[in-house]
């Protein structure tokens, strides 16, 4: 074959499994072929196609930071055929991976700015990659603020990291759960992310906002940011249209003239406003 088979995955070994929340796990993955591992590089925002051979492929972002070399991590929720098969696997088992695909967060362009991260539910993974990437380059940025919300306390993922970030003097972190999702011990806020955001009255001055979450949260967060004076091109998010190929061929992620897998998944609010609302 003169051109390489672009659908052929690398074989990766699960080095470590972390249970994050009910139905949510993180895999740390190593390339079986160390040479492939050395050649591999990616940037914050990119994703891959992960597969259980015999069950199929599914799309997750790369949740570890490119500054932490030698492995990649993904965090996923058990949902359907492939994620359920992944859920059954143990440390030492192998899976398929192809990627990295898609565009990236333009971190270099954010030097000297304040960063406001806003994430909801299982959407913290793409954000986690970006947050660690930015914290590993902490001197590039001014204030770093993280707002993270989930349905219930149990649904918050990356609990150890939330504590680690909270302990840092150079990060301001606010966590919230939906009304009714709190426990007696809960010390964070209670309320939906967009409402809590409005209460925080963030300054839009020299600030980039990055929003990841379910479509409904994103919609209302955009409204809150708009009210706070954020310009559409200072707001970034990722779209998660269903994907198969990841390389602009299968047509599944096509929204307007855009292929989310190739032109995204990272978009500014300004770009999204120009797209048909098919995401």
């Amino acid at each position: 074959m003169s051109d390489a088979n672009v659908y052929k995955p690398s074989v990766m070994r699960i080095e470590k499994i972390t249970e994050e929340a009910p139905g949510v796990k993180t895999f740390r993955l190593l390339f079986n072929d160390p040479e492939e591992g050395r050649r591999f590089s990616f940037k914050a925002g990119q994703f891959g196609e992960y597969s259980v051979f015999g069950e199929g492929e599914c799309t997750f972002c790369i949740a570890s930071s490119p500054t932490r070399e030698g492995y990649i991590e993904c965090t996923f929720r058990q949902a359907g055929r492939v994620t359920s098969a992944l859920f059954e696997l143990e440390e030492g088992d192998t899976i398929g991976f192809r990627g990295p695909y898609g565009n990236t967060f333009p971190i270099e362009e954010w030097k000297g700015k304040n960063l406001l991260f806003i994430a909801g539910g299982i959407a913290l993974p793409p954000m986690r990659c970006l947050i660690w990437n930015c914290l590993d380059r902490r001197d590039w940025f001014r204030d770093v603020t993280i707002l993270y919300g989930a349905r219930t306390v149990a649904d918050l993922v990356y609990k150890r990291e939330l504590e680690e970030w909270a302990a840092r003097p150079d990060v301001k972190i606010v966590t919230t759960v939906d009304p009714g999702g709190e426990t007696p011990e809960w010390k964070g806020k209670v309320g939906f992310v967009p409402t809590v955001l409005e209460g925080m009255a963030p300054s839009s001055e020299n600030t980039i906002a990055i929003v990841c979450g379910p479509p409904i949260m994103i919609k209302f967060t955009f409204i809150a940011l708009d009210k706070a004076g954020f310009k559409p091109d200072a707001i970034f998010t990722t779209l998660e249209n269903r994907m198969k190929c990841g390389i602009g061929k299968c047509g599944r992620c096509n929204v307007g003239p855009v292929f989310v897998c190739k032109d995204g998944p990272v978009f500014t609010y300004a770009q999204i406003k120009d797209l048909p609302a098919e995401y």
Binding site: V52, G54, E57, K244, C250
Partner: peptide, 9 residues
């Protein structure tokens, strides 16, 4: 197109 696996693990 779609991508699907057939067979066993």
């Amino acid at each position: 197109f779609d991508i699907q696996d057939e067979g066993t693990t």
